[in-house]
Design a protein around this nucleic acid. Structure first.
Lengths: 346, 346
DNA sequence: GCGGTGATGGGTAACATTACCCATCACCGT
DNA sequence: ACGGTGATGGGTAATGTTACCCATCACCGC
């Protein structure tokens, strides 16, 4: 309703009549389609510029593409997602695609489903789902209709591509680093949220499981201590308080994500303990804040920009018609900083 | 291209024939339009559920609404934006609207323009622009066609609504707090980026200008010291290094935004100085991380959720047909923490 | 000169939905 | 019984763009 006072939007018909050609010709110019002479191209382009014409996405969608890549993410609070988006945008904008983001609002199955539907309803040409918690079979339903890349889930699918970080390797870097420093009582903070994703699918689960495996392999089974709170500052804070209350208390805490590690730092500090004198703390994601001098958090770096760029490339390929499934994995590296040191003597 | 193997999407026609009614009837049910009996509603709803029908946004857009609110923001790295989005989503989702986010990628006029166009092309029913840098006249062109709310710009417009924080009041809280503690050499870190926004339009400019005014009013003109870097961790770090190099060096640093304040904390720490012993640091936005024990940053709280919620309400009102312009301002509060204290004696 | 060929431009239908208007029907009061 | 009325359902055109196919034209080799 509310007929806007604004004059009617310029359409392809306006351009056509202004340039004295058919709408078909204009459409061809817009799409760089075959069968357009240079003279025609120039004439039409001039009319387009003069009138300030922009194609209407909805009308295009009725027949063809929307030039839209939908991105589903739990929320925008995680700075790691920003790196992914930067990479994605870099890759797809050259091809004339626009990334649009919708938040699911967290690991809520219903709301995640609604967010995915929103993208499908708007006919995104491709969808990048970041760490979704929906069951694989349901994701595959979507992927059958819309080119899909799932980022961060350890699984294989015949119908969508997967981009992920080698969380086993990353966890290994952390645990080996701490053990090499002499730590034995190494605790872990994880996020139990999993929705309907398979049991060892989401990064947090792989990290936690790998932590347990490595502890066992090093004969430290008795020192396994996990606080299952969440990958947030609050979660890291609460988890650390919980872990510090145990006897004997851990000498190192591996938080599965940087923001949780920041919360851990706060809790350690609040308990009157020092980092790394009393407790070493490690994060994951190598967020920018981890590098700040007064924080200087040892963390695992996974190249989010490359992951996003690759996801974009895979989506474009699928839009072009590729149907085989691809799996792309990046190898993380450890960035040691001043939050880790040998455990206190005794 | 790339005809997806997936079976054709269920359309309103499928629902109509399945329910043995007209497409018009189905459409009415979908829109809760007038002229539908309860029996009809139930019958159609049953068919919709059975077939799993979802209306196609593009086709709706051709005739009516898209039920989409577009959000333009510079980038998702700023956690304050997350609060705004939470408020917005809360307000609009009840009315069946979906928020979709596009990033402009920073204060780049061309890219911001492209991002706005992307939302207009996709026929968002309303647009929330967060701190855009485009010239007001251009924003008004868009607002004439699409209901628009601009968040964070200190200006009035006849065609769009404005939601903002009282940055003058916020800055006053900070400066008065520091002066009350005894500080005189109070420095400020700002972000010079402005694009084509008016001279005293963007929050960073208002905060910087108010800082100068207050310093002058307190007879501290000679102590005015501004580092114009950026509202980022890097900017706060670099700006602080610059400020600490001055003689005499400031005893307090007011960073115009929390992330810049975090960078400032790092720089102060790296310089071998303590907070608040040698230098007091204040931020703005009261990000969650500001509350962490080992950071404990004094900051200005502006209620982002309320701002987002209000923006959503204003957009819905405009979609309903309101044409008068509204201006909504929230009053910030100071959250004193341990990063501020009296200056060192001498 | 003539049929063939390749390049270029255009006509048309189709996409899914909704606004507008009309048709139908039951029921009412006279 | 009959015109009027209000409630309900449906037919149709229109939205802007593009895929498909056809028409036209210049030019070629024979």
């Amino acid at each position: 309703m509310a007929t806007r006072e604004g004059r009617r939007r310029v359409t392809i018909t306006d351009v056509a009549s202004h340039a004295q050609v058919s709408t078909t010709a204009v459409s061809k110019v817009l799409r760089n389609a075959y069968g357009v002479s240079e003279a025609m191209r120039l004439k039409v382009q001039a009319a387009i510029d003069e009138l300030g014409y922009r194609p209407q996405a909805a009308a295009r969608a009725m027949r063809g593409q929307t030039f839209t890549i939908g991105v589903l993410l739990p929320h925008i609070r995680n700075p790691f997602f920003a790196d992914i988006l930067d990479g994605l945008t870099e890759e797809i904008s050259g091809a004339g695609y626009q990334a649009v983001i919708v938040q699911s609002g967290g690991p809520d199955l219903r709301r995640e489903r609604a967010a995915i539907d929103a993208l499908v309803d708007r006919q995104a040409d491709g969808i990048l789902m970041i760490a979704p918690v929906t069951a694989r079979t349901q994701l595959e339903e979507t992927a059958k209709t819309t080119p899909t890349v799932v980022l961060g889930r350890h699984e294989r699918s015949a119908v969508y591509d997967v981009v992920l970080d080698d969380d086993e390797a990353g966890t290994e870097l952390v645990v080996e680093h701490l053990i090499a420093l002499g730590h034995r009582r190494i605790a872990h903070i994880t996020d139990p949220a999993g929705g309907r994703a398979g049991p060892l699918t989401l990064p947090q689960h792989v990290r936690a499981k790998t932590y347990e495996r490595l502890m066992t392999e090093h004969g430290l089974t008795e020192h396994i201590a996990i606080a299952a709170t969440s990958y947030t500052e609050e979660g890291g804070y609460a988890g650390t308080r919980e872990l510090l209350a145990r006897t004997p208390r851990p000498t190192a805490i591996f938080a599965g994500m940087d923001q949780a590690a920041f919360g851990a730092l706060a809790a350690v500090h609040e308990a009157g303990l020092t980092v790394p004198g009393d407790i070493s703390v490690v994060g994951y994601d190598n967020a920018r804040a981890a590098a700040l001098a007064h924080i200087s958090l040892t963390s695992v770096d996974q190249d989010g920009a490359i992951m996003g760029k690759t996801a974009g490339r895979l989506l474009l390929e699928r839009i072009q018609g590729r149907t085989s499934a691809v799996r792309f994995s990046v190898t993380p590296t450890l960035v040691p900083r001043r939050s880790t040191a040998p455990p206190p003597a005794g």
